[in-house]
């Protein structure tokens, strides 16, 4: 990873996203290999690594019976932030996340999005250079998710490096680079644009009435690799070089047009190929 980038780690459940982050945060020992964080070997310089990273676990890791302020003070103390520094930093963080009005509220009574913002603030207290965020927006409403990403973008502008895992592919599109994990292996790693361009299959959008019937019909056409529903429409992938003519003949009532695949299309395609 390059300094100052947002790197998105995506992959199906069980691919190894959380494990990767835990290894980097030195919460797990690696059975083989070496991990370097900010230039330090995680296994050999755990303290140096710990001082430079901000790790945010997948589950809300704060105390629901403590207030926003108490949670922040607790983590500030653990990181050895002294009082003056804390009093300088906390209002800025609270302002950045627009959480100032909720300072005295118990963390358990915050909304999902606010909980994640609080967790983020707690990981930012000790000026980490690298953020490791494990599915930070899981179960958060779309507006709060956008909020959260705006904060992240702002942090990267200030020089932070962010490694984030996510199950939302629209979030992956916001990353500088994206890595796809499958069965514990990194199978692709590139910018979202390059990933989309690099897709060998051509992608078509099919607009039709009876999705189920059309899908069954398309899957039997020569050259069609797969058909997957995408909202009210179908996304169809054709083998490289295959002609779309046969498809048009088979379902004449449907509108078929070539589209730029979304990241979701790319990943579904890649994982299908891997699983084969």
């Amino acid at each position: 990873m390059a300094p100052g980038e947002i790197f998105g780690l995506v992959g199906p459940d069980g691919a190894g996203k959380t494990t990767t982050l835990r290894l980097l945060a030195n919460l797990l020992d690696a059975s083989a290999g070496q991990a370097l964080v900010a230039g330090y070997d995680v296994a050999r310089h755990p303290d140096a690594v710990r001082d430079r990273i901000g790790y945010m676990a997948q589950r809300f890791g704060l105390y629901p019976d403590l207030t926003v302020e108490e949670n922040m003070v607790f983590y500030a103390d653990l990181f050895g932030i002294d009082r003056t520094e804390r009093e300088r930093l906390m209002p800025r963080l609270l302002e950045m996340t627009r959480m100032a009005p909720f300072m005295k509220r118990q963390a358990g009574r915050l909304s999902g999005g606010m909980k994640q913002k609080l967790a983020l603030m707690c990981t930012l207290l000790h000026h980490p250079r690298i953020l490791l965020l494990d599915e930070p927006t899981n179960g958060v409403d779309p507006v709060s998710r956008r909020d959260f990403w705006q904060i992240l973008t702002g942090l990267v502008k200030d020089g932070l490096t962010v490694l984030v895992t996510t199950a939302y592919l629209d979030e992956a599109e916001r990353c500088g680079r994206v890595g796809l994990l499958h069965n514990g292996r990194l199978i692709r790693c590139d910018t979202p644009e390059a990933l989309k361009k690099g897709m060998e299959e051509t992608c078509y959008e099919v607009v039709c009435e009876d999705q189920r019937r059309v899908r069954a019909a398309l899957e039997r056409v020569e050259g069609v690799m797969s058909v997957a529903p995408a909202g009210a429409r179908l996304h169809m992938f054709l083998r490289p070089g295959a002609s779309v003519g046969a498809v048009r003949e088979r379902v004449p009532a449907c509108a078929v047009r070539e589209i730029v695949p979304s990241l979701e299309d790319v990943f579904i395609g890649l994982i299908r190929k891997e699983s084969r």
């Binding site: 945060a25 710990r50 790790y55 945010m56 890791g61 983590y75 990181f79 050895g80 967790a119």
Partner: peptide, 13 residues
């Protein structure tokens, strides 16, 4: 159980 241990382990405590 609540996952706070994981967070604590990532701190210098």
């Amino acid at each position: 159980e609540s996952g706070t241990m994981e967070q604590l382990l990532s701190t210098p405590v």
